[in-house]
Design a protein around this nucleic acid. Structure first.
Lengths: 210, 210
DNA sequence: CGTTTTATCACGCATTTAGGGGGATTTTAA
DNA sequence: TTAAAATCCCCCTAAATGCGTGATAAAACG
């Protein structure tokens, strides 16, 4: 067990105490090694080519280039490196932005520090470690509103509109008359209090009707 | 610790062995209690009003009404009950369907059986427990394709098109000429090899360009 | 430093679509 | 057995769409 090739980590975090804390924690754990740690993205970007870590712990709140914007830059240099986000805040937009740009996991610093080791292992094993509250945010983003004012058919049609389909195409694919589709759309607009496809889509997505 | 009010659970699972196994496991754990277990959704639906469990363990592969279709029916009767999905298969569509309809967690039966207790506790605490592979599927669904053939501007415009905006509205909001927008859209169509908004949206979403 | 890509703007044209107005009828559920 | 939901009908005008064939300036790349 002792002489396995260790899992290599780089830390990008501006708070020196946290940076050193994590470095110590990881380095004193068997089979894990911190190759380097940086207090900002700029420094990290020039050195990462040499470090070639398997996992990067990336803070979100950083001076200069923010953690979120660092993700694509890092992925450019090291496409196979797993990026684990670290944050104190649980801002929804940050979560989805980071995931969209390619982060593989998302941890809050309030987590038990030992969890960081589990998370590093999990991400190397192809998993997607998340703190409990982050998982909740992610799962909740899938939940549809059960109190939609739209009927089943109206919802169906609005979904097709959101897919960019014309009224006539919707009619053909649903085997109903164009006039029926128009009628449904009229009712949708009244219910959502809008006067265009754009606003209907926006309103429906905001309220998670679709 | 011993005389806390226990967390109440109902199991809906057709395999008798698994059903009894989970029931035994949960009932022999302090502070957890299985109120009832059912081998199909139909039976469960008529009794759930009396059971009023905090958590339901719901199998996906069931005879008659499938687990996925059971979710909205259960939510109708008991809107506050947390639903944890159980499955042997890790079918992507099932995962997203279940989450969309309101499942709060998703576990594979291959998980260590003790994890089920942790998951029940986590969901009651407002979390969203997932097996590692499920978390991976969920997180991956957010990842955008880094090899998009579209330029930044083209991607921007295609996103607006996917939001249902007209070319002229896009032009106004981006402070560019309608002709410029038309030009971009033409290039998008060529690159994606499509001839309509609908197909452009579909192609872009399929490949995660947007 | 030169070449390519990207972003910008131009004009015309045939065809379809969108949104709104006013209805009616038939299924489906409560 | 009512109410809600889904279906279909006709009219209208302004706007949008997709495609053709361009040009020019700015940015990025090697």
């Amino acid at each position: 067990m002792e002489n396995k090739t260790p899992i290599t980590v780089v830390i990008i975090e501006d708070d020196e105490t946290i940076r050193n804390g994590f470095t110590y924690l990881i380095n004193t754990t068997q089979n894990y090694k911190v190759l380097n740690s940086y207090s900002n993205v700029e420094d990290a970007l020039v050195n990462l080519v040499n470090d070639k870590p398997q996992v990067i712990l990336l803070d979100i709140e950083l001076p200069g280039i923010k953690g979120i914007d660092a993700i694509p830059k890092i992925k450019n240099i090291l496409p196979k490196t797993y990026i684990l986000m670290l944050t104190v805040y649980e801002n929804e937009d940050n979560v989805f932005n980071a995931l969209t740009k390619g982060a593989s996991g998302y941890l809050t610093k309030s987590d038990n520090t030992e969890k960081i080791i589990d998370a590093i292992q999990e991400v190397v094993d192809g998993g997607a470690p998340m703190s409990m509250n982050i998982a909740k945010i992610v799962i909740k983003s899938f939940h549809k509103n059960q109190n939609s004012p739209l009927t089943k058919r109206e919802t169906e049609i609005l979904e097709q509109i959101a897919a960019g389909k014309s009224r006539s195409k919707i009619a053909k694919q649903m085997f109903i008359d164009l006039e029926t589709v128009k009628s449904h759309i009229k009712n949708i607009y009244v219910k959502l209090n809008v006067h265009s496809r754009e606003d209907a889509i926006k309103e429906a997505k905001n309220n998670k009707y679709i």
